[in-house]
Write a protein that binds this DNA or RNA. Structure first.
Lengths: 196, 196
DNA sequence: TTACAAAAATACTAAACGGTATCTTTTATG
DNA sequence: CATAAAAGATACCGTTTAGTATTTTTGTAA
């Protein structure tokens, strides 16, 4: 029971790495079993199809990571504008797992799988919604506690910021350099400042 | 001579459509020759490989379209802030070629092919650079003519705006709805206003 | 009309793909 | 320790992939 769970998690983690780097469609099951040292029989014992595994990656790996690294940090500081900036700074400049040349795993999957794989779209949408709701909530809170002007539309601002984050990830990928991140972060700071 | 050129362009256009909708890797040559009613012999007479055709799509189809629809409109209005907003509005809300559920063709290709296909990255980077340079230039011009505050960093603002555009395309794709576009456009307007 | 190259059609290959059937080994529990 | 079920290994299937080799048709200039 325990060994099996370890094998399953091993497959999920290694497959996640491969998919983050190469994309879902171009990562073959043969690739996965080669890097995990797991046979095809074992693979299909744990997952009934490649897509079944793909969904498990999102639900069991990506979602918890997302909650820890993208959602939770938003609720740390008193000032939501600081929370947002610090989150972005950490994600772009310091997070050792996310690599500039491979972009954002969630964004990559969204781009690749939507709109053709409804199940993928659904769980990815859930993932994103959680982030949106949290950011919207802390902005609303910030309005009440005076950190943010009453004039700002929380949801609107959230969409704008998150869009810019996903977009700059694509830029970083294209230029394969964190330079783009730096000027992005500066302008993000300017933008956040006018929300006061 | 003329007929051959027509065949070639037919392949490029149809293939572009397929790739925009399904992605490059998942669009097979058999898919392409099926929808173009062109045989494989004809296909390989015009292109020496699939990648050769892919690059031709970017150079011969995407680049001119990009120059016409994304770059040129930036230089229309006197006020660069208006140019930028109007461009985004048109791209997101009115452009009949770009579909919300399939995102932005250039962004899709970047996400899918970078960093694994150096040739693709290169031409896509050229494409993007042209857009960046143009937007940066009109912002600088706007600073001189008084439409924009001298304090703004043109390149920084350009990166921020373009990132947000690419990002919101991803959002639209995920939610398969232009609703996201609307609140994005509102906040973009707010942001542009503070650059005055 | 003939000659000849450009263009297109046809038939094929070798490798890779996701997935299955069958068999063997581990592991937990009476 | 016996036994059944869980877990994993191996060989293979049918299909699809990008690409090639060969042949046929078409346009055009002498």
């Amino acid at each position: 029971m325990k060994k099996a769970e370890a094998t399953r998690l091993n497959i999920l983690h290694k497959a996640f790495e491969l998919i983050y780097v190469k994309g879902y469609q171009t990562t073959s099951i043969d690739d996965i079993i080669a890097t995990t040292q797991v046979t095809k029989g074992a693979f299909y014992y744990h997952f009934k199809s490649k897509d079944d595994m793909g969904l498990a990656i999102i639900n069991d790996i990506l979602k918890p990571t997302f909650a820890n690294s993208l959602v939770k940090p938003l609720q740390n500081d008193k000032n939501p504008l600081d929370s947002i900036y610090n989150l972005m700074y950490n994600l772009l400049m310091e997070n050792e797992f996310l690599k500039v040349e491979f972009g954002c795993p969630a964004s990559n999957l969204t781009q690749e799988m939507t709109p053709w794989h409804a199940n993928f779209s659904k769980v990815l949408d859930e993932l994103t919604k959680e982030w949106i709701e949290t950011m919207t909530a802390i902005i609303e809170k910030g309005k009440k506690s005076g950190f943010i002007s009453k004039d700002v539309n929380a949801r609107q601002v959230t969409m704008f910021i998150m869009s810019s984050y996903w977009g700059i990830r694509n830029f970083g990928k294209l230029e394969n350099s964190k330079k783009a991140y730096l000027s992005y972060l500066k302008e993000l700071k300017n933008y956040l400042n006018v929300l006061k």
